[in-house]
């Protein structure tokens, strides 16, 4: 009985771990299917382009950095 209960607990634990790991590597379509081909506005604002590192949050329209 002890082996059975431990087996259930471990199965759920491995399953949860697998779920966490799998969801960590999950990518949104907008991340996976993004190219660097188009850039419409000032790159410093980077709100117009959903780049490969976009986290889903649109950054504040801060002052464009002079370069």
């Amino acid at each position: 009985m002890k082996a059975f209960i431990i087996a259930l607990v471990v199965a759920v634990a491995i399953g949860t771990l697998a779920a966490m790991l799998l969801n960590q590597q999950q990518r949104f379509a907008y991340q996976a299917f993004t190219t660097s081909g188009t850039r419409v506005s000032d790159p410093a604002g980077h709100s117009n382009l959903v780049g490969p590192h976009w986290n889903g949050v649109t950054p504040d329209p801060e002052k464009p950095s002079k370069s």
Partner: peptide, 14 residues
């Protein structure tokens, strides 16, 4: 032994 039964039950319950 305990470990064998553990492996069996983990696989079978899944």
């Amino acid at each position: 032994n305990g470990f064998e039964r553990f492996a069996h039950w983990m696989t079978s319950s899944c």
